[in-house]
Simulated assay, not measured.
Amino acid sequence: MLFVNVCVILGLFTPVYGYKILGLFPHKGKSHYDTYEPLMKALVAKGHHVTVMSHFPQKKPLKNLTDIDIRTGDYLVNVINLEDITGSRLQRYLMPPFLAYVGYGTCSEGLSHANFKNLTNSGHRFDVILTEFFNTECFLNDLNRYQAPIIGISSCTIMPWDDFTVGVPSNPAYIPNSFMPFSDTMTFLERFENTISYIFCLGVFEFLIDIPGRIVASGYFSNSLPNLKKMAANISLMLVNNHFSFTFPRPLPPNYIEVGGIHVGKLNEPPMVS
């Protein structure tokens, strides 16, 4: 009888194996964070302790979710018209430099924020890190100190410069630049412009994103210019809010996982019609 009671008591205790997870989302765009927030909450629901650094802390505290607020000003809400991306040729070529400009502000404001510095100096350890890959990589220099696997995540199809960073094949002969209105069957002139647009985006990344980001990061971490591209290339996984049914066929490495619709919650059942 004693043996049975002991077994019953032990059965009431279920072991929980939770990880300490850091989510770093320094971009001010609310639509971007709306993609990542459901994932962070789902990790909390699975029993993990999640620390989220962003501009959008929870309005109501959530158990096992620690918000680190790095707000410095207004959100980027209703300030970018999607027609600017799908509009004229000039608008399409102006968008990469504009994103680089926004990314530079993200670096300088985020790295200098007191709450970011407090986390950096706190000595906290994390088992895994999730961070956005969009228009800057300057935060990777700090994340590297945690010696934890880094998972990149994107709220949309990744930027052309990230194709080369994470090792996604991008042959401009049949893979259209995401800023261009082409399909996977292009004419010679379209292929030529598609190639030029890839080269242009790589130039924007090198001179307006990577080099400025390295300079800003070196100023806050007291070291020589960090090799951010090498750090980005060593990420363990890339989660992309995209789906092949919405884009054109292309080869993808095994660490590139499409998670289109990750931000969509549970759908309500339609009412029964009598």
Rank of each mutant, 00 (worst) to 15 (best):
M1R: 06
V6T: 11
C7R: 08
I9E: 12
I9R: 13
V16N: 15
K20H: 13
K20W: 05
I21L: 14
I21G: 00
F25I: 04
F25W: 10
P26I: 08
K28W: 02
K28A: 11
H32Y: 02
Y36K: 04
V50D: 07
M53W: 03
Q58R: 11
P61V: 03
L62Y: 06
D67G: 03
G73E: 13
L76A: 08
V77L: 15
S88E: 09
Q91E: 15
R92A: 13
P96Q: 03
F98W: 09
G105C: 05
T106A: 15
S108Y: 09
G110F: 08
L111T: 03
K117C: 07
K117F: 07
G123S: 10
F126A: 07
D127W: 07
V128P: 00
E132F: 01
F133T: 04
C138L: 02
N141V: 11
R145T: 13
I151E: 13
S154H: 08
C156D: 00
I158Y: 08
M159A: 10
V168R: 11
P172H: 09
P172S: 09
I175C: 10
T185V: 15
M186E: 06
T187V: 14
F188L: 13
F192M: 15
E193Q: 14
N194A: 06
L202Y: 13
V204P: 05
V204R: 01
F205A: 09
E206C: 03
L208I: 04
L208E: 14
I215M: 06
S218Y: 03
S218N: 03
Y220K: 06
N223K: 12
A233R: 10
M238H: 02
F244M: 13
T247I: 04
R250Q: 11
P251G: 11
P254W: 04
N255V: 03
I257Y: 01
G260E: 05
G261P: 02
G265I: 01
K266A: 11
L267R: 00
L267T: 00
P270K: 11
M272A: 09
V273M: 08
